[in-house]
């Protein structure tokens, strides 16, 4: 079997007395959409934060394409092919939509110690800007200040920025949250399309979306993996039904 794209080995993280993740191991294979589900407080977002580097881990190791990234600073992970969206949208609120996108594009165009040419007139960056905005349906809103976008549009922009980084592994933290039904369908379509280009680790509460999108699912409860498997395996797993799905039915 090929080396998994992302390998997590015995990861631990505590906040004081609260265990956010404990002896957690997980493999995400190249090309799959891997969903992470679990009740509130299961440690899903914490795990994404640890993978992305927003949080340090107490112990355990994280590998991306075989390279250890456990202690790599946040900014060194993006160049290795890691991009993420946040649960609480964090676009640059006082910059315009195109400036937001430009920063994401600029990020993988070498260093930004360029002091003269205007960023918004740089042909190299502009060549990518149009398609990147197009991809998330924000071409019309290019000059809008990002803080003035609707909630759904901010989410779109955030996903778009993650895509502009051309990641190998995309971490999506509840992308559907707060989206209307129409928006969720659009986003599902987009995620399905992305699958051809990248691997996706998805945290989501919308079960319908997860069962239709995911190739494999991992269930987290209190920071521990309860089960990992295909959609059908997870649906029929008694432990999962009891621990998690049971609550909903």
């Amino acid at each position: 079997m090929a080396e998994p794209l992302l390998r997590i080995k015995s990861l631990c993280k505590s906040f004081g007395a609260v265990r956010a993740c404990h002896d957690l191991s997980l493999d995400v294979h190249a090309g799959e959409i891997h969903a992470l589900i679990g009740p509130n407080g299961a440690g899903k977002t914490t795990l994404l934060n640890q993978i992305a580097g927003d949080l340090s881990s107490d112990s355990g190791r994280i590998f991306l394409t075989g390279q250890e990234i456990t202690h790599l600073p946040l900014y060194r992970r993006a160049p290795l092919g890691l991009a993420r969206s946040y649960q609480i949208t964090s676009v640059f609120a006082n910059l315009s939509v195109e400036e937001n996108m430009l920063l994401a594009i600029q990020a993988h165009h070498g260093h930004s110690f360029r002091f003269w040419g205007r960023g918004l007139k740089d042909p190299q960056l502009l060549a990518e800007l149009g398609p990147a905005l197009e991809a998330v349906g924000l071409s019309e809103r290019a000059e809008t200040i990002a803080g003035n976008l609707s909630h759904g549009e901010k989410k779109q922009l955030e996903v778009g920025m993650a895509l502009a980084c051309k990641p190998q592994l995309l971490l999506l933290d509840e992308p559907m949250a707060g989206m209307g039904p129409g928006g969720s369908i659009e986003l599902s379509k987009l995620i399905r399309k992305l699958k051809k280009e990248m691997t996706i680790l998805l945290v989501e509460h919308d079960m319908e979306a997860i069962f239709s999108l995911a190739d494999r699912i991992t269930v987290l409860v209190y920071g521990e993996v309860v089960a990992t498997g295909s959609v059908d395996e997870i649906r029929s797993n008694p432990a999962v039904r009891q621990a998690y799905l049971g609550e909903e039915n």
Binding site: Y75, A83, R84, S90, F92, A93
Partner: peptide, 15 residues
């Protein structure tokens, strides 16, 4: 200007 808005976000973009 991005750093002014959110430094953490800039780092996660790879800066």
């Amino acid at each position: 200007r991005g750093c002014r808005e959110s430094e953490k976000r800039m780092q996660s973009l790879g800066f």
